[in-house]
């Protein structure tokens, strides 16, 4: 019997990619685009929590900040779409460097509190700043043309542009994780004092990872501003920061496909819950609550565990207790 040698993570990716390509034929494209924006956002967030072990609680600052910049450039300054998106993501990266410099000196919960406080400071700035439209936000943002040619007001053309950018963004995160740089990040996550003793400038690595995460979050926010033609205070509020934590946790912290699945689940859930308008926050809170209590590995984490158990049993039928050690040497098929 031929052994299927395709790594399950790669299989899931190919499936997602294939679904992404035919997606607009099956599902409402704007909904799918929203899912993709949040999938990118959650992937960027996951780079920090999953691979550096930093719980950042202020990522709305990068997401919403970029949405404002892109929205403003498109609507008021009339810049082309591709430049506006890039400018939004770059602005988020600059914010990321500043926040990172202030926050990475502290660890664990302090890091969470500092990033949250800085994001709130940015929120107050957005409330008062003249270019954000205050309580109303920026509405009816024109989608513009890509390179002056492709009309993005058509949902399907926009869909493939968003799909290409999101796929590249997730690939960037994937490459970061699987590079020597990413190995150092994981080393820092698992044992920071040891990484320091080996001569790594830990704070520099953390700052670079933080900036990449901010940049990609910004990319997601910029796309979201174009897709929904909207940039509001909700995008920079702490609830958005909490939402991205929930998506990542639900999908599986420290897995590459997890955040994508998590974003899809949460956005779909929000879509179905619109009928219960005022109870959405409570329901989302309850889902969050029980995910933390009993489903901490998330969808991808649980799937990986089940798959590994299953394969162990299939590969080595009844053997003695020593098979238990198989687990330790089995290659980690971290998706």
């Amino acid at each position: 019997m031929p052994r299927i040698s395709l790594n399950p993570a790669a299989a899931i990716f190919l499936a997602l990619l294939a679904f992404g390509l035919v997606g607009p034929l099956l599902v409402y494209p704007v909904f799918l685009m929203k899912v993709m924006c949040f999938a990118l956002f959650a992937s960027a967030f996951n780079l920090l929590i999953g691979y550096v072990g930093l719980l950042a609680f202020g990522h709305a600052m990068f997401f919403g900040g970029a949405a404002y910049v892109t929205g403003y450039l498109l609507k008021v300054a009339g810049w082309p779409a591709e430049v506006s998106i890039l400018a939004g993501a770059t602005a988020a990266a600059v914010l990321g460097v500043i926040t990172g410099l202030l926050a990475i000196g502290r660890q664990g919960i302090y890091f969470a509190m500092i990033t949250l406080a800085l994001a709130q400071m940015f929120f107050f700035f957005c409330v008062q700043a003249p270019f954000t439209g205050g309580e109303n936000g920026l509405t009816a943002i024109p989608r513009g043309h890509l390179f002056g040619l492709l009309d993005l007001s058509d949902d399907v053309s926009l869909y493939y542009v968003v799909f290409a950018i999101v796929a590249s963004g997730i690939f960037l995160i994937y490459r970061t994780i699987h590079s020597p740089f990413g190995q150092v990040l994981k080393g820092i996550r698992d044992n920071e004092p040891r990484a320091i003793s080996l001569g790594y400038d830990v704070n520099r690595f953390k700052l670079i990872a933080f900036t990449i995460s901010a940049f990609v979050s910004g990319l997601a926010g910029a796309l979201k501003a174009i897709v929904l033609q909207l940039a509001t205070l909700v995008d920079v509020s702490w609830t958005t920061s909490g939402e991205v934590v929930l998506m990542t946790l639900m999908g599986g912290i420290g897995t590459v496909v997890g955040p994508i699945l998590g974003a899809a689940v949460i956005i779909t859930m929000q879509n179905y819950l619109t009928g219960f308008a005022e109870w959405v926050v409570t329901i989302q809170g309850l889902v969050f609550f029980f995910t933390v209590l009993i489903f901490r590995r998330g969808i991808a984490g649980e799937a990986e565990r089940i798959y590994r158990n299953f394969r162990l049993r299939a590969v080595s039928p009844p053997r003695s207790e020593k098979t238990g050690r198989q687990d330790a040497v089995a290659p980690r098929n971290a998706a």
Partner: peptide
């Protein structure tokens, strides 16, 4: 921390 955060949401 996340559990207390979700309690706050609820």
């Amino acid at each position: 921390l996340l559990l207390t955060f979700s309690l706050a949401l609820i």
